[in-house]
Design a protein around this nucleic acid. Structure first.
Lengths: 229, 229
DNA sequence: CAGTGGTCTAGACCACTCG
DNA sequence: GAGTGGTCTAGACCACTGG
């Protein structure tokens, strides 16, 4: 019943939960009680329980106490690197080609994702990312010029992604992964057959004054997004 | 320069970082200094900085101090629900059909992912998950019987996934998302055309005594894995 | 070896919310 | 209204690691 640090205390409590000492949904003792039981300060118990709550093992509510989660939800941490970093991290040379740069009315799906009026004029950028000359990802980006604190200029030398992370304060964003068959334009750029199954990541980024950009990234065949739980 | 809680302190420091007061890679003041500056206890500064570190905004090392991260890596938290929960959370009725249950030598790819000897005999389960009777996901699971603390019995009434989360202590796992064209068997079960682009999640779970199970989950067309950043 | 972050303690106050 | 978790303080010790 002794624990020296909050991590070992977390393990001790986690073990008791796994052993069904407290069944699913059951109330476990309060922080003060556990602090006495284990001979530690209440703050230490608090940290251990917060870690378990963050891991989805328990649910905590004021006044109601701490309960064993009915069905444990796994939470994974996903790291989303800038493409250039990902490529260079593999020891490959990064490059990109700006395939198109135009101003056009945003398609309905994009406008909806960005919570903007349908048909709003936005900057549309199409970029191909390369690793050692081989196609890595096909990027389709819509950028709301009104949301930018300063005009970005052309994106010939610096990718839009990197310009944005350096110049626009980030507030929140939405990210989704899905699978889709490659349209002809994407397939041609990536050098795959039309209709090939590709992993697509969609990202909408919001700044202080609303949506900034919406990106659809078609990854090369075989690309995997990996994480540990 | 006053901050009342660790969250407002985190915001204050984040704002100074975004304002380039400390450039990328720069060392920011130590905890003790910041505690004096803001008139709070060092523990409060510690919590604020730990939150920024977890968000990828700063990097902290003992002795070396806290630095502004060179390129901010976005970290997203993915919640991986049990399929039944996901379905029922949408208000649909969950069901599953066990399509196959056999013992067979693990294919090389599976054995490698589970860090087991090639050809090791494992239990192979094929399951179709349904939401309101409509196919939701096609599951291909390999289960190492040696890694289980107790024999699981048949999985006719309780899905293998739920039996495992309830009976096997979880240590770590690997999760990957990819896109793949549906093989004939999967396409038939999901009611889609062969070769359709499907989102696939692969998961390998490790217990105290090694790999427990390896799962390949073919999601229905249009399925998205979403998160916020 | 010295400075930094990591952690723990004992005590306190507060916000929230359940009964 | 009362009990719970959330947070803060002031002080302390320690592990790690860069110079």
């Amino acid at each position: 019943m002794t624990a020296h640090g909050w991590e070992s205390l977390r393990e001790a409590l986690h073990a008791r939960i796994r052993a069904r000492e407290w069944p699913q949904g059951a109330l476990i003792p309060g922080e003060e009680q556990l602090a006495r039981d284990y001979g530690v300060a209440r703050a230490t118990v608090n940290r251990a329980l917060q870690a378990l709550a963050e891991a989805g093992v328990v649910e905590r509510r004021k006044r109601a106490g701490t309960r064993v989660a009915a069905l444990p939800v796994r939470r994974a941490r996903l790291e989303i690197p800038v493409i250039r970093q990902e490529v260079e991290g593999r020891g490959a040379a990064y490059a990109f080609r700006l395939l198109a740069d135009a101003t056009a009315p945003a398609p309905p799906a994009v406008a909806q994702a960005m919570q903007a009026a349908a048909g709003r004029m936005m900057r549309h950028l199409v970029t191909l990312h390369l690793a050692d000359g081989a196609p890595q990802a096909f990027e389709d980006r819509w950028l709301d010029p009104e949301a930018l604190p300063e005009p970005p200029g052309d994106f010939a030398g610096l990718s839009a992604n990197e310009w944005l992370v350096a110049h626009v304060p980030f507030v929140s964003g939405r990210l989704a992964f899905l699978a889709a068959a490659a349209p002809a334009e994407v397939a041609a750029a990536l050098g795959v057959e039309g209709g090939a199954a590709l992993l697509v990541s969609e990202r909408t980024t919001f700044g202080p004054s609303g949506a900034i950009t919406h990106v659809r990234l078609w990854h090369r065949p075989g690309h995997r997004v990996e994480t540990t739980l």
